[in-house]
Amino acid sequence: MSTVLETTGLSKRYGRTWALQDCTLALPSGRVAALVGPNGAGKTTLLLLCVGLLDPTAGSVQVFGRSPHQQAAETLPRLSFVAQDHPLYKDFTVSDLLTLGRRLNPRWDDALARARMQHLGIPLTRPTGKLSGGQQAQVALVLALAKRPDLLLLDEPLASLDPLARRDFLRTLMDAQLETGQTVLLSSHIIGDLERVCDYLIILSAAHVQLAGDINEIARTHKRLVGPRQDVAAIARVHTIIETSHTARQTTLLVRTSGPIVDTSWEVQEASLEDIVLAYLTQQAAEATKATERMQAPLPAAQEPQGLEQEIEEVEL
């Protein structure tokens, strides 16, 4: 299976801030990949680098074996991108947008576009500014699909949509997926929506890739371990602990297994994708907090009681 998208040590800096650092990925063709991570993690930056709208500060990105920024003329016709909030020309009618697509793209499938608009019940003569949010998102998606891309990238396509619109959007996407077997990469900070449609996962947090791989593989190799409160060193020697949580009587771990779990002191449970993603993000957040705490000086303890007394006084006044 060939890889449609490859990045090697891809990094992007704005001024002094690194938006993306040392990102190495290989997305196989035909996959529907989810790019998840908190806001500000670098998802939009990664997508813009992949479509050639940004150029890297360091490292490289290749789509179909070419640089999308340097060789835009060759890669653009095979790429489609739907930006965040699906921007459209608000004063253009839907029909105008289809004309735009037809005139500006050699591989445009006008019949498909019109059929989909009809199937979705979107009137061709209405200015897109007058359509509902969900309909605008569908129009943007159909425009991207009618270009017959080999690689389709979407930046938070579901963010501004209500649950019904989200389901309809994904349904259109899956229908197209059935027909074309294209490669899709979509970003979101909500995992729940993506579990059913994606078969590849990339977790991005704090400008770094935390995890990337086939979703079934990830589900198979990540387990939740529950046991009486104990030291985790033994388990940590064999498997990678992603997240640890202790209560008075119980310890819960999320681990990435490198083989079967033989330690009988642990109960092995399946972990949902959402749990796995949260574990990776929590770990990243915890490390970030520790780094920040090390940098801050501790507050002198004497201040606290005084503050409390002051608060009470103010309330009484």
Binding site: G30, V32, R167, L170, R171, M174, D175, Q177, L178, R196, V197, C198, D199
Partner: peptide, 15 residues
């Protein structure tokens, strides 16, 4: 059919 399943539950056809 796969298409019918997609219409029922929005799911990846590969699944």
């Amino acid at each position: 059919t796969v298409r019918e399943v997609i219409a029922q539950i929005t799911i990846n056809p590969n699944t």
